[in-house]
């Protein structure tokens, strides 16, 4: 009896966490998925009626804005962060004497809350008192920089702040990747007189493909979940010009009291995440088992 109990201890230890994940992750996904197929408004209803919530969602101009914003923000945020991160990583990899200090400076934004980042950039980009007046003070009196309150450009301010926060982190990923490239190969290439730019483009960067992939996954994931930054920086405005799916979902759930719409938008977000992440995780897990 005691022996049997002894054998069950690992399962008993794992059980509470397993049940919690099963219930609060997978159970909740099922709940949200179910409710997204009903006519729920202020209170959840449980009679499935089909895809009317999704039809409403795709008909909504606000959701349309949110999705195209996600696309604009996502693409720019990922591309610029990757480019900047890679550039700084390569520059830092040239046996720089104060590397430690510089690295610390480049990476500290990652320790900040996105609310803090949003607050800081909201002030810096303030039309009137921020960057605009600084440049005007330098003599360019006609300089205008009102992106924060311009519905056509406000989404780019989210990109500016997002890149500032995340690019240092991408730099750290790439730097670790650069350091893991086999030194012997690079030395051999140097001896053969191959120029440094060629060494990077033909030897080092191709061998870092997995790092590009994981940087992409992390950034894409951050972009889709972006909520805090928009709330702090623009509040989704002007109007709903900078709405993202995450802010749309929150507004519908907690201010508008439209549970059906909130649930269906959350499900769409999850599908977007899974479309990106599942193939990646699958290949990762399979590679590990081989």
């Amino acid at each position: 009896m005691l022996k049997w109990f002894e054998k069950q201890v690992p399962k008993i230890v794992l059980a509470p966490s397993f049940i919690a994940i099963l219930l609060f992750v997978y159970g909740f996904i099922v709940w949200t998925g179910w409710v997204s197929l009903t006519r729920s408004r202020l209170l959840p209803k449980y009679d499935i009626v089909g895809f009317i919530q999704y039809e409403r969602l795709f008909d909504s101009p606000r959701w349309d804005t949110a999705m195209s914003n996600l696309f604009i923000f996502g693409v720019l945020f990922i591309v610029i962060s990757m480019f900047l991160g890679l550039l700084i990583a390569i520059l830092l990899d040239q046996k720089i004497r104060v590397e430690g200090v510089l690295r610390t400076i480049y990476l500290y934004p990652m320790a900040l809350s996105l609310i803090v980042t949003g607050t800081a950039w909201k002030w810096i980009l303030n039309p009137g008192l921020g960057i605009e007046s600084v440049v005007q003070g330098w003599g360019f009196e006609n300089f205008k920089f009102d992106w924060l309150i311009n519905p056509d450009y406000a989404i780019y301010t989210v990109v500016i702040a997002g890149v500032w926060q995340a690019s240092g982190f991408v730099m750290a990923l790439f730097l670790a990747g650069l350091r893991s490239v086999d030194d012997e190969v690079i030395k051999a290439a140097r001896v053969d007189g191959i120029p440094t730019t060629r060494i990077y483009s033909a030897i080092i960067l191709p061998s870092m493909a997995p790092i590009f992939l994981s940087a992409f996954i992390v950034l894409a994931h951050l972009a889709i979940k972006s909520f805090d930054l928009v709330i702090a920086l623009t509040g989704g405005g002007p109007g709903y010009a900078t709405d993202l799916p995450a802010t749309y979902m929150y507004a519908l759930a907690f201010s508008r009291g439209d549970i059906g719409q909130a649930a269906s938008s959350a499900m769409v977000m999850m599908m977007v995440v899974f479309a990106i992440v599942v193939p990646y995780l699958y290949s990762e897990l399979r590679a590990k088992n081989d």
């Binding site: 992750v25 709940w31 409710v35």
Partner: peptide
């Protein structure tokens, strides 16, 4: 299952 759970956008669990 736990690993996949790390990836979900939390919006999907907010209401329940």
């Amino acid at each position: 299952l736990m690993l996949f759970g790390c990836f979900i956008p939390f919006q999907v669990v907010l209401l329940p």
